[in-house]
Design a protein around this nucleic acid. Structure first.
Lengths: 248, 248
DNA sequence: CGTTTCGTTGATAGTACTCAAGTGGTGTGG
DNA sequence: CCACACCACTTGAGTACTATCAACGAAACG
């Protein structure tokens, strides 16, 4: 049974055949009747009220992130959200400048927390599915803490490339192509690195043949296996970011 | 309305009066009839099966953590769990050596995920409360990523002390006393620091009058305000770790 | 009392940050 | 069409922080 919490826009990396499969039609859902569709352009911030008047967002397409602005330090990108993810205020730590920001043109559903809970209470299957989804998001947040806490710059960057390749990559003749929706600053803020340091890392990756960059974020990963070998968490990323078809 | 998901064992830090309030009696719950009580001694690992035969743990007392053992690196303590927290396999990234470990003598409830979901489906209030609890745990995981990603060693250690003070501290005549249940290695692994570096940090803190250590993890924080001033996330920690009475 | 373990401290090296200069592309106005 | 300003990215040199390794001291244990 297809559900609203599953990825709608992810294009699976499939090493056997060319991806770019047509998007699957979605079934009608009780949620879409009560939710307000919202389109967010790049860099637009979505309001995160404080409890108890909470708002729940469900990502339909695009890419969003939690950002914070620590006093006197650089912006942080704490977490990335993909289609199907569920976001509410209380999931976000009350850091200075904390906000939910669209990193690309995105579509989300917005609905009050009490409506969301009422809808879940009415459907045990969707309730269980929402729980699993939130648990998966938790695992991703924990993994990110692990990556930022122990890996060096090269390994962190390789980890992000693997994640984006699994989420957004397409099979091309010369490797896997990814239209990276993050700016260089975004990537540095997400990996807790300095933009200068990130530039050195990308230069090393290009020199090692792990990466080819074109304009506008168009990126080619010529050697997927070598890239996966550059990060100790490639297998873990696979379980959290690969679509079910590619996991099997 | 009191619930099973609220802290049962936390002793709030209250700057107005002495803490050590008597523990509140808990109401009967449908969960305790279906859950298996489990006692875990220090360093004991709790089994984390893979989906779909998932197990859900609910912390009753004590302190637990998620640990991982990256190849060729030191152990990582990725997350701490306090009474009331909900833990299931899919919340934990599939890292090498990932396990749920008791850091102190702990009591948990164990039940199959499908039973847990069935019980939540029967009670909309508990369902909503479980969702809020999981969201709060998500916020803590994200905050930890922020701490480990951007703060230096001193700030990380101060952040942990504030967290433990809020969770486990008691008001004493000379300041706030905390029986820190973590070994030095645990703390270093949690803060993504080297044990040697952590030792230097504690020495600095003792020299600055922020910390007094006795044997067996008995710790005194003489200057709470000064400690909070040592970390940029003191206010955020307050919202996530302070009991409701102390937050107001 | 000796052994083991843990914690501390010093010296050194590796990594990333900061600051600064240089490069390339883009857009605007002459 | 060119000149210029502007911005993002790159690269180099110096600095700050932490990890690593080794030695020392203290406490726990037999």
């Amino acid at each position: 049974m297809m559900s609203i919490f599953q990825n709608a826009a992810a294009q699976p990396v499939n090493h056997e055949q060319t991806a770019l499969a047509p998007k699957i039609a979605e079934p009608a859902s009780a949620l879409c009747e009560h939710a307000t569709p919202v389109r967010a352009r790049r860099r637009q911030r979505l309001v995160l009220e404080h409890p108890p008047s909470e708002t729940v967002y469900i990502v339909r397409s695009g890419l969003l992130g939690i950002e914070a602005l620590p006093a006197g330090k650089h912006r942080q990108l704490l977490e990335l959200f993909y289609p199907g993810d569920i976001i509410r205020r209380s999931q976000v730590p009350n850091l200075p400048g904390a906000s939910l920001t669209a990193l690309t043109l995105s579509e989300v559903w917005r609905l009050p927390a009490h409506s969301f809970e009422a809808l879940l209470a009415a459907s045990p299957e969707q309730n269980a599915q929402a729980q699993r989804r939130v648990a998966e998001q938790h695992a991703r947040a924990t993994l990110h803490a692990s990556i930022v806490g122990t890996l060096n710059g090269d390994e962190r960057f390789a980890s992000l490339l693997v994640e984006l390749g699994l989420r957004l990559g397409n099979i091309g003749p010369a490797g896997i192509t990814v239209d990276v929706p993050l700016s260089r600053t975004d990537i540095a803020d997400y990996l807790a690195l300095n933009p200068d340091t990130l530039s050195r890392i990308t230069s090393r990756f290009k020199a090692r043949g792990l990466l080819t960059q074109f304009g506008g974020g168009h990126t080619l990963i010529p050697a997927w296996e070598a890239l996966c070998a550059s990060t100790p968490v490639a297998a873990t990323l696979q379980t959290l970011h690969a679509p079910p078809a590619a996991t099997a």
